[in-house]
Design a binder for these strands. Structure first.
Length: 651
DNA sequence: ATGCCTGAA
DNA sequence: GACCTTCAGGCAT
């Protein structure tokens, strides 16, 4: 019936990957319609010709080119290599991973079914059997609506296109939060340390509870789900498995994976690589390009992956293939926040006044969040998005804690933004990083290695009052300030110094837009900004075309090509820090969790490091064989140097 | 340190 | 008729 791709369902040939890209991230959810292709076509047509669409097309093209480069590289790397021998080496690594597999923990992932939609249903039974969705910015669709291809995150106008009768219910966030709290409260009876991953999902470790109550995991989870249904009239799905990766990938209802390696591997074998946390649209395509669609395919192509470890991250993928992942569950860390920000989208504008107005609004929002949360920080990042959807960031750091007053944030933002004009923007945002928690009096300082020790001791500082200015500054910051600045009274100082702070830099007074574009650099005023900009502006292209693309990379029209590729995997496969007072240790290399003293832990680390050495030797041997030039820079280091902990463990 | 990208919810 | 927001983390330079 349906035409297949060759018949060009869309007028102009729209590539498969682009269709998929447009379709959005959350394909493959429960209750989807069968004919995805058809739906994708509707989606693509709905936005065809828009700047958004063009931008997606551009990104898709970039990716395609990148894939071509990777394939070429693969051919070079593979040439003349005894692949079998490489595989033998990898197999040894796999064998070692297997040995360390930890199946001792009962990890459960719980997930409320169509949460927003079902809460609405509860409050408004008239909606039953109607196709409806909750919409604010992202979309949460009822099951009825999902059958039409409506997914979360989809813009309303497209949802309507897919299902004209769709009933749109406004978002009622406070209501969902309230329900969420209630539900999480129930979960916490079973694991007080549970991790609430979002309003409607979470992870639990039921090992202790099951043991204490002499329950099987399935019985326990059944009880828990019954309790939720009884007390909230909402239904929850649960996956039971020995780690978080496996627990999350479950069908609806209640699903338990057998806790043995064979079952685990069988389960992983056909699992789409896309289901692995950390593998998104881009990495899915990258992997697909070398023939990997399922986790089982990882094994098939382990030789290539080994030779291209840099691009793909062999270690992580092997763990994934084996179904090995973190089984550590801990509550959301108090305030391990790394950044606070605010951003806003609007219809594109190019008037400088109006843009600055938006910036001011964003600054005000940020002020509220910073003050409300009790934060300050040292660097401010401006983000802007052109009407072409290209995104840029500009940052500036300070050597002291900044004032979180909106005037100050605005002034910093202005300083970063003004040199970029002329611009036509559809979004502007500000973010503060290098945070400092003003509600924690002392101890906790981002750079401090000792933090972990302090934390386990003071956990709940009995001081009920959180004041911004610590009463006893002297005791607070013993020695941490290496630059001799008075960091002891964060909020206070920053505030007071706002003006005086600006003695020799333009800061808040006035920004003095021009003059500096030339060689004269007033200290490191606007470091990265002007450099590339000057080239383009000196060209005189400034007039009309100017705001098509500010520059970002020198000369080339494209923002920047990079070889990065498979990112963010490496950090993810290792388990989180152990909870407070316990002596539970998690190996940063193999993620194994153990209850050991330092000596044993060190021994284990050494063991894991030696595994890394084996892997490295393997890789280097094969690389040598394949001869030259694969490695752009002479860096030979493969994986093993990614841990500072070798230092720590050395005692 | 800065900028860009990817991913997640 | 026009695709969000917030945050984390990795890589390159």
């Amino acid at each position: 019936m349906q035409s297949d791709a060759t018949e060009t369902p869309v007028p102009s040939q729209t590539s498969d990957s682009l269709l998929k890209r447009l379709a959005g991230p959350s394909t493959g959810k429960a209750g989807l319609a069968k004919d995805q292709t058809d739906i994708n076509r509707v989606i693509a047509e709905a936005s065809k010709g828009s700047k958004f669409y063009e931008n997606e097309k551009r990104k898709d093209k970039d990716l395609t080119e990148k894939i071509a480069r990777i394939l070429k590289q693969r051919d070079e790397v593979t040439k003349g290599v005894d692949m079998h021998q490489v595989e033998v080496g990898v197999d040894q690594v796999i064998a070692k991973m297997e040995v360390n597999r930890d199946l001792s923990q009962i990890i459960v992932h719980v997930d409320m079914d169509a949460f927003y939609a079902n809460v609405e249903l509860l409050d408004n039974p008239d909606l039953a059997n109607k196709k409806f969705g909750v919409c604010f910015m992202s979309f949460s669709a009822s099951y009825e609506a999902r059958k039409h291809g409506i997914r979360s995150g989809m813009p309303e106008y497209i949802a309507k296109k897919l299902c004209p009768e769709l009933v749109v219910v406004p978002l009622n966030m406070s209501r969902y939060s309230e329900m969420s709290q209630k539900i999480m409260g129930i979960f916490r009876r079973y694991d007080p340390n549970m991790h609430a991953a979002s309003v409607d999902e979470g992870y639990l470790n039921l090992t202790p509870y099951c043991e204490e109550h002499m329950l099987t995991a399935a019985e326990c989870v059944q009880q828990m789900r019954d309790a939720v249904q009884r007390e909230t009239s909402l239904t929850v799905s649960a996956g039971i498995a020995p780690n978080k990766l496996l627990a999350k990938n479950k069908p609806n209802g209640q699903f338990q994976l057998d806790f043995d390696p064979r079952s685990v591997k069988a389960f992983m074998h056909d699992l789409s690589i896309r289901k692995v946390p950390g593998v998104g649209r881009v990495n899915e395509r990258l992997l697909e390009s070398i023939g990997i669609k399922t986790c089982g395919d990882i094994f098939t192509h382990r030789g290539t992956l080994c030779l291209m470890d840099k691009q793909f991250g062999l270690h992580f993928l092997l763990q994934t293939y084996l179904g090995i992942a973190s089984n550590v569950v801990q509550p959301g860390q108090r305030e391990e926040r790394k950044s606070v920000g605010a951003e806003r989208t609007f219809t594109a504008i190019d008037s400088k006044e109006k843009i600055l107005k938006k910036l001011e609004e964003v600054a005000a929002e940020l002020e509220a969040d910073m003050e409300g949360g009790g934060w300050t920080g040292k660097t401010v990042t401006l983000k802007y998005k052109l009407d072409t959807y290209q995104v840029f960031t500009r940052a500036k750091s300070f050597d002291r804690w900044i004032s979180t007053k909106k005037e100050h944030l605005f002034s910093i933002g202005k300083e970063l933004l003004l040199p970029e004009f002329p611009l036509k923007l559809r979004l502007i945002g500000l973010r503060v990083t290098k945070l400092r928690d003003l509600r924690v009096d002392a101890d906790k300082q981002p750079g401090s290695i000792k933090r972990q020790f302090f934390d386990s001791v003071d956990a709940g500082p009995s001081s009920p009052r959180k004041r911004r200015r610590s009463a006893t500054p002297d005791e607070d910051e013993p020695t941490l300030s290496q630059d001799g600045f008075e960091e002891s009274m964060p909020g206070y100082l920053a505030h007071e110094e706002l003006d005086p702070d600006a003695p020799e830099y333009s800061g808040n007074s006035t920004i003095k837009p021009e003059s500096s574009s030339d060689g004269t650099k007033p200290v490191r005023q606007r470091p990265p900004v002007s450099a590339p900009a000057s080239t383009s502006s000196s060209q005189g292209t400034s007039s009309h075309v100017a705001y098509l693309k500010p520059q970002s990379s020198s000369s080339s029209t494209e923002p920047r090509k990079r070889g990065s590729s498979f990112v963010s995997m490496k950090g993810k496969d290792r388990a989180e820090e152990p909870p407070d007072g316990r002596e539970m240790q998690t190996c940063p290399l193999c993620s194994k969790i153990m209850q050991v003293d330092n000596r044993d832990f060190n021994a284990h680390i050494d063991f894991c490091l030696s595994k890394g050495a084996i892997r490295e030797a393997q890789a280097m041997a094969s690389a040598d064989k394949s001869s030259i030039s694969l490695r752009p820079t002479g860096t030979h280091k493969k994986v093993p140097d990614k841990r500072p902990s070798s230092k720590q463990t050395k005692r």
